[in-house]
Amino acid sequence: MSIRIKEYCEKIGIKQADLAERLGVEANTIYRWTSGARIPHWNDILAMCKIFNCTADELMGNDVENPQIPRKVARKRVPRESGERQAQSLRL
């Protein structure tokens, strides 16, 4: 999303400081967003969408026409305790 914020600012011809003023945040907040150090709050994302005249999906870089299917996350298996051992841990 950091790259998209920069791109949309350039596209509509405003500086990041102007965007900060319109959103009511500090200029260094915009810098943190555009550097990837922080992620904007949902309310700020919606406000930017109005300013940039785009959808949240477009601002966040989600391709609505060709969505990526996330890979299944591998889970680490945790061995279960035997019944007797589990009963002991519950008594403690």
Rank of each mutant, 00 (worst) to 15 (best):
A17V: 10
D57E: 05
W33M: 04
C49E: 00
V78Q: 00
A17H: 06
N53W: 00
D63T: 10
M48K: 01
R38C: 06
A87M: 03
E7P: 03
A17T: 09
L59W: 10
D63Q: 12
K15P: 14
M60L: 12
V73E: 08
L59M: 05
A20K: 02
P70C: 04
R71W: 08
I51F: 02
A47P: 07
G24H: 10
V73W: 07
R71V: 13
E21Y: 11
I51T: 00
K11M: 06
R38P: 06
P40A: 03
Q86T: 11
A87Y: 08
R85L: 11
H41F: 05
P79Q: 02
V78G: 01
I14N: 09
Q68L: 14
N28V: 04
I69D: 14
R71F: 11
N53I: 00
E84G: 15
E7Y: 02
R32H: 13
T55N: 00
R77G: 08
R32W: 08
E58L: 01
E81Q: 09
K76F: 07
A20T: 03
L19E: 06
G36D: 01
A17E: 09
A27N: 13
A17W: 03
I5K: 00
Q68H: 15
A74E: 07
L90I: 05
E26A: 12
Y8E: 08
A27V: 10
N43W: 10
K11S: 11
S89G: 03
K11T: 13
A17K: 04
T34A: 05
A27P: 14
P79E: 06
Y31L: 11
T29F: 11
E7I: 02
R77I: 06
R71N: 13
K72N: 09
D44S: 09
R32A: 14
R80E: 12
K15Y: 15
R71L: 08
M1Q: 01
V73S: 07
R85Y: 13
V25W: 10
Q68E: 15
L59D: 08
M60R: 10
V64D: 14
G83S: 15
R4F: 11
D18M: 06
S35Y: 08
E10R: 12
D44W: 01
R4W: 07
T34F: 10
G36C: 02
I39A: 04
Q16G: 14
N62R: 12
D63Y: 12
C9F: 07
D57H: 10
M48N: 02
K76L: 01
E84N: 15
A27C: 11
V64F: 15
I39K: 06
S35K: 09
L92R: 02
S82T: 15
I69L: 14
S35L: 05
G36E: 01
S82F: 12
R4A: 12
A56W: 00
Y31P: 13
D18Q: 10
G24P: 13
N66W: 13
A17S: 11
D44N: 08
K6V: 12
Y8P: 08
A27M: 09
K6I: 11
H41Q: 06
T55V: 00
L92N: 02
A17P: 09
